[in-house]
Structure formats: C-alpha cells, structure tokens
Amino acid sequence: MSHSIPSGSRWRWYIVFFVAPATLIYTVFAIYPIVESLRLSLFAERDAVEAFVGIDNYKKLFTEPYWADQFWNAFKNNVWLFVLHMLIQNPVALALAAILSIPNLRGAATYRTIFFLPTLLSVVVIGFIWQLILSPLWGITPAFMNFMGVGKFFAPWLGLESSALTAVTLISIWQYVGIPMMLFYAALLNIPEETLEAARIDGLNGWSIFWKVKLPLILPTLGLVGILTYIGNFTASFDLIYTLQGGLAGPNGSTDVMGTFMFRTFFGFQAQLGDVNMGATVASSLFFIILIGVSVYLFGVQRRLQRYQA
C-alpha cells in the first residue's frame, strides 16, 4: 500500500503539511456541525427542556408503527433505487465510456459533452421539464407513443403508486449517468496501449479485448462506482424526489426514500413541524447503513478486486 521511506524517529513535517489543511477545514465545517446535530438523537424534548434519553429515540424509530413503517418503506424504496441504478445506470455508463474510448472515434469530445450535459442542470429545471414531458396533459409523451404505435401503453406514471418510483429513478439515471461514465472513461483511457497491442497480437478481437482485457483492468473502478452509487442513492436522491414529488414523496408515500424521510422529519414540512431529535435519529441510522456498506467495500470488495487485478 505505501511505498514509504523507512521512517526515522524524527517528526515528518511534510505529512502534516499534506493532511492537516484538509483535516482542519473538514473537521471544523463538516464534522463539528454534523456531530452537533447527530448527538441530538440521544435527546428529546421533555416539558420544554432537552433531556438525555439514551437510545429511546432509536427504539421509537424501530418499534412505533408510525416511524417504523416510514423507515422501512423508505429503505425498501432506496433498495429499489439502488438496484435500478446498478442494473441500468452503470452498465449504460460503462457501454458509453467503452464506445467513447475507441481510439480515433470521430466526434468523441462532442458526444462526451452531450452525454454529460444533463448532469450539469439544476434539479429545478429537470423536475419541470420531465413533468412536462411525462405529463398526460401537454401531449409530449402521448404523442410520441402514438406515433410509435404504442399509445395505449401510456399512463400517468409519475402519479401512480405502482410506477412513480421507477419513473423518478429513470429520470435520476438520465441525469446522473454522466458521472460513472466519466469515471469509467478515465479508467479505460488509463489502460496502457502496450497491453492492448499485446492482446491484438494474440489475435483477440475488439469484443473479447473489452471483456478479457479491459474489464478486468478496470474492476477497481467498477467497485468504486458501485460504492459511490450506493452512497449517492441514500444521500443525493433527496433533491430530485423533493422537486418532482414534493415533501410527502407521493403518491401515498410511494417515492419516499431515506433522504426525503430524513429531511421531512428534521426540518418539517408544511403543517408538520420539524423534529430535530427524530430527524437526527433517522440521520444517524442512515449513517450506519452507509457505514456498513462502505466498510464492506473497503475491507471486502476492494481488497479482493485489487488482489484479482494483481
């Protein structure tokens, strides 16, 4: 892992120089405020005073039906969100990156920019435009589907409990596919030309070079994208769903995810007052869920991938 020069007993200032600035800013402006908030999960308001209640809030979250139902509903929806991103977003991103990395492809830079454009947009406009496109009223999708002869399959997807979450997820994939694409692309371009040349001399064609040479070489990036998808699925999905489906994540809570649940609880929504204690409890639980995923990755998947590669 580290190719370090053997350390003497002397204090190596350059290490401080490298890690201290980031650690300092991060500790003061990220960790401190977050810890200040998360510790509230151990308190509750009793008779207008904040009182230490231990893990009572966690008990409440997992045993009281009102909380537990929301938690597991949001969790279940997050799992679906994750599965769809893994099954659709990342393969599409990989395919696009693979095509774009073909040497001397004409217009590669233009295509790459086009594919990344949706990622640059703010959710306000993405929410507006996709609601407009998918709307049963303004005719864009219905007209297109009629033209393709499949008009009878049109449904107001964003408004149906059965399809809203999937529709929202597909919009999210449309928006974010550029990020894994860039990561794959950077990894694919990093493969030394000699390796590929050697494969060609061995008589492999483009297809099998991709599967047998390139893919194994970029496995660590696949793992990285997987864990980033896992994290983003819990933390970044909030904005889009809030914009598209509102704070209650309708219809009937069917698009509620951990992010919307957490922010709704913490900050309140409309007539619902914010509850910082329960909000912090949800956030802390989410923190552990993500931590477990990241640990599995760091100590399980990642090591195996590197061993495989070596």
Partner: peptide
C-alpha cells in the same frame, strides 16, 4: 377530472 389526473400537478391545473 382530466385523464391522467394522477400525474397532474398544481401548475398543470392552473394552466389547464
């Protein structure tokens, strides 16, 4: 209500 009202938002209704 109009067809597809399940996916009709507030802005949609105003404009309709």
């Amino acid at each position: 209500l109009g067809s597809g009202f399940q996916a009709q938002g507030y802005t949609d209704s105003q404009n309709l």
